[in-house]
Nucleic acid binder design. Structure first.
Length: 832
RNA sequence: GCCGAAGUGGCGGAAUGGCAGACGCUGGGGACUUAAAAUCCCCUGGCCGCAAGGUCGUGAGGGUUCAACUCCCUCCUUCGGCACCA
């Protein structure tokens, strides 16, 4: 067994001393490659999921390096945020100390694993040198009118005592961190107007050719564009109108009621005195429920306001109800109820005996089904009926015609809504970047001038949250002077969501030590966009939207020449335990990279991880794979040890060779392997790259065994050269996957320089084919025989050989085949 | 419910219209060894057969094709995401 401890520490030190990870100062624009893995949240040491993420990236880095790319491969720490604060409170440490300790531990692990990061470019989001520019980003958005304050009913976690973003509340209305029930609360909060970029973010998705389809689909859905019409309904006996948004104007003749959200400001106005107490009671009840509670039951309930509205097209009078299935913050907060063609409206109407009026007839029916026989709404397309002059139109056509009609008659306008909501970024917590704003009693809200950044996060005695930011209780921080009038004023006490910190870090890496600007324009446009971004898919609708947004804003402001941060996104799969469960400290089923490294070595750990599945697939981690990986690596090592001393003969000198076909086969296999490994590494399918290498190694062993036979001593001499060359290729092709051992073997083969400086092997396309090829011969789709023909045989010749085959003749019994299909290089199928 | 991905031996997986199960793990047998470990060689989807060979087989059912794990239709299951978005 190779001495992995000695070999790995030797080469780890070598790479470090040689500075191979350093980023070139002036990258060649044609060769630049920015490889990025999602930076880490430093909670304890790295786990096996990190190990996968970073080794997948590292292998790609080594491959790119050999291809001659100028690489930027940085790393950093997303170190602000709740978990650090929670852990710090528990352990009575300052969050900075807790986080800092974890960073040192994890950084050392990454170095021990020899992950190819340029540590000179490390960033840590909690350092003033970094968050100074996070604050700068905030100010740019503020200047552009993209940061605003608003009172808002927010998700409030009573246990963490903070506001949560929508993404931080799970489907059961529980806090993402502590899993306690999330409540509602009204607070004055800062928002980024990401909705102003909804369309740009959506359009941009189409240009993201090398992003996984599922992430793009999730983002499209999250942005949620829908086109429709906003229509005014007159309220009977009142001057006011209610407007509704609908994507189905073709069903407008089927409106039999209207429903308004309980929180809607119009509710009190629309409620008649007879209904007042009932409505007020309902509104109160609804307010106590969260949106998730309301949706969970599936129950549709509401209360009649006593008022009526008039359908602008049919002139029919419809009841106005309050119903909590209507969302205040989508569309106009009012919906037109079409029970026959919307399932929610249907349930509501059935419950309260509201009429159901059919206006769309399914295409496969001639007559209308009586509305009282319907058991559910008909929501598909169909033909319009009971719709005045629009009868007979197909619904898609009807949507267009009615929309036109409504606009012409000035009854409403076409409109597009998005489900994307603005980004709430205020956090009432200590451990974050302070929001660089002041609230002057005279001048109102004022930005802190850029020259006064950073607004330093002060040391506080007590950062335990009490329902407002601990910064509010720190006089030295909160009291300041107004930048406009110089009078006494107060700072905004809140800190920023950590997603703000991570929304621009990819830019900072291009120029991480710049203390004059967040990044030099030149540096950032030279290195970005990121060429390959590797991380988990859990950020699909969080970070991966936010950083696209910030990139677009900074592009519009003229700082960047690109408006998408990442060319190719790759989501690696999760690492689960043998039972398929998520590894966690509480379950006690975690495996640490350090354990693997010490017991089996870094290379064996990598190979085991890579071989288990393609990088995007989920892995059930078990120690079995490590043994196999070690066995394979040792097999390669033994092979190379045995031939390291062989002469490097000229391969093409075949005069002495007895078995030309064996020689040719090895040569062909070598080139096929180069092709496959290259393509597989490009796709991050390291599992099949490894299996191709295993096959080649097995083949070399086979040949060596054959040549041991006494009668073949002369052949052995002739084979030495090509075996050696093939082994060299194996070492190069394997080196991104098992770098330490391959450096060692490369040196054993007499090379003076690092394997990283060797060029990536190229294959010769003409060497991919053998002179002879074996074809399967099928009769009626079943393999019955095999024939060997020259590779470039004409179809006719192949047919002849196949039909002349003894087994074929026997099966056909002299009958002429109906058809013979020849697939060159693959098979012959005889149809009889 | 909607969107997305997936379903292949005892296990991880390979093959994206052309010989299903590559490669590896596990298991079995053998060689070497005083012995063990390591290493090397052979076998390892089911059924029938002494064997040659035959036959079934990629979640289920249909279809297209000379040929389907692969394409089309219907359905089932699992995972991920979203979830009253009018």
């Amino acid at each position: 067994m190779y001495d992995f401890k000695a070999i790995e520490s030797k080469w780890r030190k070598y790479w470090e001393e040689q500075g191979v990870y350093k980023t070139p100062v002036e990258p060649d624009p044609r060769k630049k490659f920015y490889l990025l893995e999602m930076f880490a949240y430093p909670s304890g040491d790295l786990h096996i999921g990190h190990f996968r993420n970073y080794t997948v990236g590292d292998a790609f880095w080594r491959y790119q390096k050999m291809k001659g790319s100028d690489l930027l491969h940085p790393f950093g720490w997303d170190a602000f945020g709740l978990p650090a604060e929670e852990a710090a409170i528990k352990q009575k440490l300052h969050p900075r100390d807790w986080t800092g300790k974890n960073i040192s531990t994890s950084r050392q692990t990454l170095k021990d694993l020899a992950i190819s990061y340029d540590w000179d470019r490390e960033v840590i989001t909690y350092t003033p040198e970094y968050y100074k520019w996070t604050q700068w980003v905030f100010l740019q958005l503020y200047k552009k009118g993209l940061a605003y304050q608003a009172d808002s009913s927010v998700n409030w976690c009573p246990s963490c005592k903070t506001v949560l973003a929508n993404e931080q509340v799970d489907s059961e209305n529980k806090c993402w961190r502590c899993h306690s029930e999330v409540a509602k609360r009204n607070l004055r909060q800062w928002f980024f107007k990401i909705t102003a970029y909804a369309q740009k973010l959506l359009d941009g998705i189409d240009k993201l050719e090398h992003w996984p389809e599922n992430i793009k689909a999730m983002q499209r859905y999250w942005i949620g564009r829908s086109e429709g019409v906003e229509i005014e309904f007159k309220v009977q006996g009142s001057k006011s109108n209610v407007s509704v948004f609908t994507t189905r104007p073709d069903t407008i003749y089927g409106v039999t009621f209207m429903a308004i959200a309980p929180e809607h400001p119009l509710v009190s106005q629309l409620t008649t005195s007879e209904q007042k107490s009932r409505v007020e009671e309902y509104v109160k009840k609804a307010a106590a429920k969260t949106e998730i509670d309301r949706a969970a039951t599936g129950e549709k309930d509401g209360v009649f306001t006593g008022s009526f509205a008039v359908n602008p097209l049919s002139g029919e009078q419809v009841q106005l109800w309050v119903a909590d299935y209507v969302l205040l913050h989508y569309g106009t907060g009012v919906v037109m109820g079409v029970p026959a063609h919307d399932q929610r409206d249907f349930l509501f109407a059935k419950k309260y005996n509201i009429p159901v009026k059919v206006v769309i007839r399914p295409a496969d029916r001639q007559t209308d089904r009586p509305a009282d026989q319907m058991t559910e709404a008909f929501t598909d397309e169909g033909t319009m009926v009971n719709s005045g002059s629009f009868n007979g139109l197909v619904s898609t056509e009807g949507i267009r015609k009615i929309s036109e009609h409504i606009e012409k008659q000035r009854l409403g306008t076409r409109k597009t809504y998005y489900r994307l909501k603005d980004w709430l970024l205020s956090r009432q917590r200590y451990w974050g970047a302070p929001i660089p704003m002041v609230h002057c009693p005279k001048c109102g809200v004022q930005p802190v001038p850029e020259k006064d950044l950073p607004v330093l996060l002060p040391e506080v005695k007590d950062y335990i949250p009490k329902g407002r930011s601990p910064l509010a209780d720190e006089p030295s921080f909160i009291n300041t002077k107004c930048p406009k009038c110089n009078g006494p004023t107060q700072r905004d006490p809140d800190t920023m969501d950590t997603f703000v910190c991570s929304s621009w870090y990819h830019l900072r890496y291009a120029d991480p030590r710049n203390d004059k600007e967040p990044f030099g324009k030149d540096a950032v446009n030279k290195w970005l966009p990121v060429d390959l971004y590797i991380g988990g898919a859990e950020h699909a609708c969080g970070h991966l939207i936010y950083f696209r947004f910030i990139t677009k804003v900074l592009c519009d402001l003229g700082y960047l020449k690109f408006d998408e941060p990442v060319r190719r996104l790759f989501n690696h799969g999760m690492v689960l335990d043998e039972k398929g469960e998520v590894m966690s400290k509480s379950k006690g089923n975690v495996t640490s990279p350090r354990e693997i490294m010490e017991e089996y070595g870094v290379d064996a750990g990598r190979v085991a991880m890579f071989f288990a599945a393609p990088s995007e697939a989920e892995i059930l981690w078990s120690k079995n794979g490590l043994v196999g990986a070690q066995r394979f690596l040792n097999r390669v090592y033994q092979l190379v040890s045995g031939i390291a001393t062989l002469p490097n003969d000229d391969v093409r000198d075949t005069r002495r060779i007895a078995s030309l076909s064996e020689m040719e086969e090895l040569y062909c296999r070598k080139h096929r392997t180069i092709k496959q490994v290259t393509e597989d590494i490009e796709a991050l399918h390291y599992n099949t790259a490894l299996s191709a290498l295993m096959e080649l190694v097995n083949h070399i062993y086979e040949i060596k065994t054959l040549l041991k036979h006494p009668t073949r001593a002369a052949d052995y001499a002739a084979f030495k050269g090509i075996i050696r060359k093939t082994a060299e290729r194996v070492v190069l092709l394997l080196s991104p996957l098992a770098p330490h051992l391959c450096e060692e073997m490369w040196q054993m083969l007499g090379n003076k320089e690092s394997v990283l400086k060797a060029p990536w092997p190229q294959y010769n396309p003409s060497a991919l084919k053998l002179k002879q090829v074996e074809l399967a011969v099928q009769i009626n789709g079943k393999v019955r025989s095999r024939i060997t023909v020259p590779t470039d045989s004409a179809e006719e010749d192949v047919k002849k050989v196949a039909l002349a085959d003894e087994k074929v003749k026997e099966m056909l019994k002299g009958a002429a085949p109906k058809k013979v299909i020849v697939i060159p290089g693959r098979l012959v199928n005889i149809v009889s």
